[in-house]
Simulated scan of single mutants.
Amino acid sequence: MFVEVDEALRALVGADAVDRAEVDVVFDAPTKEWAARRNSPTVNMFLYDIREDLRRRHRGLINEYDDRGVVVNRHQGPRYFKLSYLITAWTQRPEDEHRLLSSLLWCFLRHDTIPGASLTGTLAEIGLPVALNIALPPPEDRSFADVWSALGGELKPSLDLVVIAPADGGRRLPAGPPATEGVAVGLQDHAGDMVDAPRRNRRTEQM
């Protein structure tokens, strides 16, 4: 999933923000050693934090129906993960870096989600939006200064991009045949698995 998000971001930035023939788009850690080796205009999109978005987690299993409206399978809902990127521009002059950052900002302001044409692999197969949030305040338990300190580099202007990407756990359970007699009630245990409750016959209910 991470590589697919990287490639989708590279395609979006190359199409709407920078000239890929003149500006490199990389995903390296912007350490002092890396900065010393850089010799061309560069946009760096460093993935520095990965967290699940618990507010979007779906509990239990989701039914899959055939053309007759009969449940044929059950599967887990997608899990959503927040991928935080530190975006920096690297050139010989601060003014050029600011121009690049401005172009990147407007690019992500124009797009609430990654365009579907840029999605590949499992992200394209899931068919769900991949949301983009740019320049939001950092969480209370993290600051950008802390990120730069961990990298051992000097603080410089940057944009914080948060990508909310869905992931399919792949767990699917076949459903049993539809009941033809009596009434069956399905319950869910704490793990989300379907458990059969005792069956009650309609004749018994009418007595």
Rank of each mutant, 00 (worst) to 15 (best):
N39C: 08
G153M: 02
R200Q: 06
T122R: 12
V72K: 14
A165S: 15
E7F: 03
R55P: 01
R20H: 07
F81D: 00
R200N: 03
G60C: 05
G192S: 05
G121R: 11
E22L: 14
R202I: 15
F81C: 00
V5M: 02
R199I: 13
I134F: 11
Y48T: 02
R99T: 10
T91D: 14
D49L: 00
D53G: 01
Y65Q: 06
H190L: 15
S102M: 10
D196I: 00
P129M: 02
D66W: 06
I114P: 05
E52S: 02
S103G: 15
P30Y: 05
P94C: 05
G192N: 09
D112C: 01
S102W: 07
T204K: 13
V72S: 15
D6E: 12
H75E: 12
P139G: 08
A135T: 06
W34H: 11
L136W: 07
N73H: 12
G169V: 05
D16Y: 11
I87T: 09
T31D: 06
W106G: 04
L119G: 01
W34C: 02
N44A: 02
P115I: 02
V18Y: 02
T204L: 11
A35W: 03
R110I: 01
T88S: 09
T91C: 09
Y65P: 07
K82G: 01
S143F: 04
D53M: 01
A17M: 10
R55Y: 10
T113C: 12
G121I: 04
R93Y: 10
P178T: 03
S103Q: 12
F144Q: 15
L155H: 07
G170C: 09
R68C: 08
N201I: 06
P138D: 06
D24M: 09
P178D: 03
S84M: 12
V163E: 03
D19N: 15
L61D: 00
D49C: 00
V195P: 10
N39I: 08
G153Y: 03
R59S: 12
V147S: 01
A117C: 08
G169N: 13
R172V: 14
A8M: 04
L155K: 03
R110V: 06
E52T: 05
I164F: 00
G182W: 09
L83C: 02
S84D: 13
S84G: 02
E205A: 15
D193W: 05
H58I: 07
C107L: 06
L119T: 00
H98V: 07
E64W: 06
F81I: 01
V130F: 06
A184H: 11
A35P: 01
I164V: 14
P174T: 03
D6A: 04
P78R: 00
A184F: 06
G77M: 13
R68L: 14
A184L: 07
D96R: 08
V163M: 02
S143K: 10
K32N: 12
K82E: 08
A191C: 05
L128N: 09
D24N: 14
D67I: 11
V147G: 05
